[in-house]
Design a protein around this nucleic acid. Structure first.
Length: 280
DNA sequence: CCCCAGTCCTGCGGGC
DNA sequence: TGCCCGCAGGACTGGG
């Protein structure tokens, strides 16, 4: 379930390994069990082999590598969805390795895309294609770049439940199911509140807790759940799972009030965890 | 416009 | 004990 903190950790892993150096793409390859890789490998090779890695970015829950020369640059986008990993070393298994790149002139020589379930994808866009698929309008402002004013404005979604709105990537980019539950608990806001009923003070607490939790989760290098799928770019576990207050803790005593039990409900076909006593 | 169910896919754990 | 089904939830799609 890579969300913003996990994808940011992947981005930093790649950046630390290749950043600041002139990096040339030498080889691009793909292993069995093809996932969505577009365009096909042959044309991807034509466009990026021999080119230079210029920038490593993140758009919401995607890692974006800008590759090329000054003018015509391409954008290689890794979208891990549920079980994808962008690695610089130690892919968990060979079986689910989906895509690899060999780089020259830097400490790491390989970038891997590994994906157990294969729901993710790797795509190459030109500048206008990137704009078309992932530009503003297609995807909201980043959860760590949005201002309080903008945050309050995009959540003017009268009848939508606040938890469902937080998951909508067109409104805010980067929040997924796990961190939505955690930030609402920390902000003491009930996940089923309709957005129109939120007061400015509620929005302010949500905004502050969103930043707090995402930044802290990045420091801990993300959350590795019991299925163990998510790893950082060196295939090591994250640490934020030990900081969770509500996610996947149905029936446990709330760590905040120490009285009520954490409940689990379904919203938009996803589990939400919350404390009825703390969250109003 | 928004909501909902279905789709992709694999591995696991709960239940029988 | 062993097997099978359902669930996990990223993003997208089509129908209401």
């Amino acid at each position: 379930m890579p969300e913003l903190p996990e994808v940011e950790t992947m981005r930093r892993g790649i950046l630390g390994a290749v950043g600041g150096k002139i990096v040339t793409v030498e080889k691009v390859r793909c292993r069995k069990k093809p996932i969505a890789i577009r365009p096909a490998l042959s044309s991807m090779r034509k466009r990026i082999v021999g080119q230079t890695v210029l920038k490593i970015d993140r758009i919401g829950k995607r890692v974006v590598m800008e590759i090329g020369r000054k003018q015509a640059t391409s954008f290689l986008v890794f979208e891990p969805r549920m079980t994808g990993l962008v690695l610089v070393a130690n892919p968990p298994t060979r079986e689910h390795l989906r895509f690899g790149m060999t780089l020259g002139h830097c400490d790491v020589s390989q970038i891997y895309y590994w994906d157990r379930r294969g729901l993710g994808n790797v795509r190459l866009f030109d500048r206008s294609g990137l704009e078309e698929h992932l530009g503003p309008g297609k995807i909201g402002p980043d959860a760590l770049k949005i201002s309080l004013e903008e945050f309050s404005a995009v959540l003017r979604q009268p009848r939508r439940e606040v938890k469902v709105a937080l998951l909508d990537q067109k409104l805010i980019a980067g929040i997924g199911n796990l961190y939505a539950s955690e930030m609402l608990h920390a902000a003491k806001v009930h996940p089923q509140r309709e957005c129109r009923d939120l007061r400015q003070r509620d929005l302010k607490r949500m905004y502050e807790q969103m930043r707090e939790i995402l930044q802290k989760a990045i420091r801990y290098e993300g959350s590795t759940l019991s299925d163990g799928t998510y790893r950082n770019s060196l295939n090591q576990e994250g640490g934020y799972q030990n900081q969770h207050q509500v996610y996947d803790k149905e029936g446990e005593k709330c760590r905040h009030c120490r009285k009520a039990l954490i409940e689990r409900i379904t919203q938009a076909q996803r589990s939400t965890f919350f404390c009825r006593r703390c969250q109003k």
